[in-house]
C-alpha cells in the first residue's frame, strides 16, 4: 500500500493564561494519534498543559509575494499607536 502518514501541525499552550503556540509538526494517521504523538514528542519536558493539532493541508497561508500589498499599507498609520499623540508631561495615567 505504502501511503505516507499525513503531516500535522502542533500547537501547545505552555500554561493556562497563555495562548497556544506553534511548536512544530509530526506525522499521524488521525487526530487522536496526532495528539498522542504530540504529547510524546513535544511535551517530554513538561512543555504544555494543552495541545492543538491540525492537519497541515487544512492551513491556508498568505502568499509571501503579496507581502507588500498585505502588510506595507499598515506602515504609515502611526495614528494607531499611542505615541502619535502628544500630551503635556503633567498629564498622568493616560
Amino acid at each position: 500500500m505504502k501511503k505516507e502518514w499525513p503531516i500535522w501541525e502542533v500547537f501547545i499552550r505552555t500554561k493556562n493564561g497563555l495562548e497556544h503556540r506553534h511548536v512544530g509538526s509530526l506525522h499521524a494517521t488521525d487526530s487522536k494519534m496526532a495528539i498522542e504523538n504530540a504529547r510524546d514528542v513535544y511535551t517530554r519536558r513538561q512543555e504544555g498543559v494543552s495541545i492543538w493539532v491540525v492537519e497541515s493541508k487544512y492551513i491556508s497561508a498568505s502568499n509571501p509575494d503579496n507581502g507588500e500589498e498585505l502588510f506595507d499599507p499598515a506602515k504609515d498609520k502611526a495614528y494607531r499607536h499611542p505615541t502619535f499623540y502628544k500630551l503635556p508631561d503633567e498629564v498622568k495615567h493616560m
Binding site: 500500500m1 505504502k2 501511503k3 502518514w5 494517521t29 488521525d30 494519534m33
Partner: peptide
C-alpha cells in the same frame, strides 16, 4: 504504518 492508515480511513 499501513495498518494505521487503513484503520484511520475505515474510521473516517
Amino acid at each position: 504504518r499501513d495498518a494505521a492508515v487503513a484503520y484511520a480511513e475505515k474510521q473516517a
